[in-house]
Design a protein around this nucleic acid. Sequence first.
DNA 1: CTTGCGCCGTACCGTACGGTACGGTACCGT
DNA 2: ACGGTACCGTACCGTACGGTACGGCGCAAG
Lengths: 218, 218
Amino acid sequence: MAASPTTPSERAAGDLARPSETPDEALRARLLDHTLRVLLRDGYRRFSMNAVATSARASKETLYRHFGDKTGLLHAALVRMAVLIDPLLHVGLDSATTREDRLRQLGRNYLHGCYLPEALALQRIAYADGEHGLGPLFAEEITERAIAVVEAEFEALGCDDPRRDAEVYLGMIQGKLHERIMLGAELDDLDGQIERQVDHALVVMAPYLTTLDERRPG
Amino acid sequence: MAASPTTPSERAAGDLARPSETPDEALRARLLDHTLRVLLRDGYRRFSMNAVATSARASKETLYRHFGDKTGLLHAALVRMAVLIDPLLHVGLDSATTREDRLRQLGRNYLHGCYLPEALALQRIAYADGEHGLGPLFAEEITERAIAVVEAEFEALGCDDPRRDAEVYLGMIQGKLHERIMLGAELDDLDGQIERQVDHALVVMAPYLTTLDERRPG
DNA sequence: CTTGCGCCGTACCGTACGGTACGGTACCGT
DNA sequence: ACGGTACCGTACCGTACGGTACGGCGCAAG
């Protein structure tokens, strides 16, 4: 809301127009966006502070001033990504009435979020990284949040162990598609694949949910 | 079988005693074992040809003579790992009578193979690597083989789409455990976790399999 | 106008890596 | 006994990276 009153001359926002940000926030956002972009373009190995600075047309000094070191930059980029994709999980949930519809929509959203190019790049480094502590951060900021949302859904379904069911459901819809994508397979019609993945997961899970229903009123 | 007759003086096998190998094969095996070990110890980023050479007490020249370059070494190590873990998938399958028992045993074996330390290290680099072509190789040499075995099992169950069911099942038993492990979570009682994971996957899947049975004889 | 701050661009330093070259040595086949 | 081959150890080269330093510029505050 409060656009800093002392700086009316909004700095050229560069690539993404973000209203109501202090110039400092705008710069930070720009740097983090380019961090994700470079990560996506160059991969984990080739990712370098130099490349980020060049891509963002900033100086390395600025990078280090804002984020301390490479670890700090990667952490900030991960957290930013988490904030950006979080709302995606809730898209279209209001218009889903059936429990099954809600699960289907949740599954769709989850997979679409997972397979965003920048999200994939982040998953790659979170998986492979062993020196910047990105793995635990990813687990906390991204995985855990998603599980919590799905868990709430299964809790409303009256499952004995909603947490476990949520994890199984997410595993089902990922199936081996996730692994294939992470391993670099180029597949066409990703949306269709996602749809089929979620559909079949629900086909397999439906009888189980029915048994829950039957046992519940009894 | 045929131990090369011209070289009776078996070279000091170093770390692993492997009978009936030509010295060249023994050296290759030693180098690849140390490759996996260094990969496991140092991670993907810090992994270096120097470290492998030092660990194996070999010279870099030898490494390059045998494997060409870093990519070749990593490829060879991956293929070797694939060969080593392949038989693990079939452990105890003979004594499993029920279809469900077979699925359970298969699931156990699969997860145990996945979570071997060296296998984890390989998965990490296969996921993150974008320059050595390890992803597709991993998919072909490891993932694809495992899926095929499980697929055969579901085919025997009379599923409409055994391939898809196999992938869903593997996804279920991995659940979020796989992701947590890959992200560096330290968890105790891995065996217990695996057991619970497989158990619950079968609980969820059992009603679905029953519907298949019911539809089948009718 | 002066001061200070944040930024840019570039240069710089130390280190580490991939890959090659070379001297020296053990062993094998002839 | 001789030549070839594979090996070790080490040194070397070019490159690239993380991180720092410095000069110069724009801009806002006093």
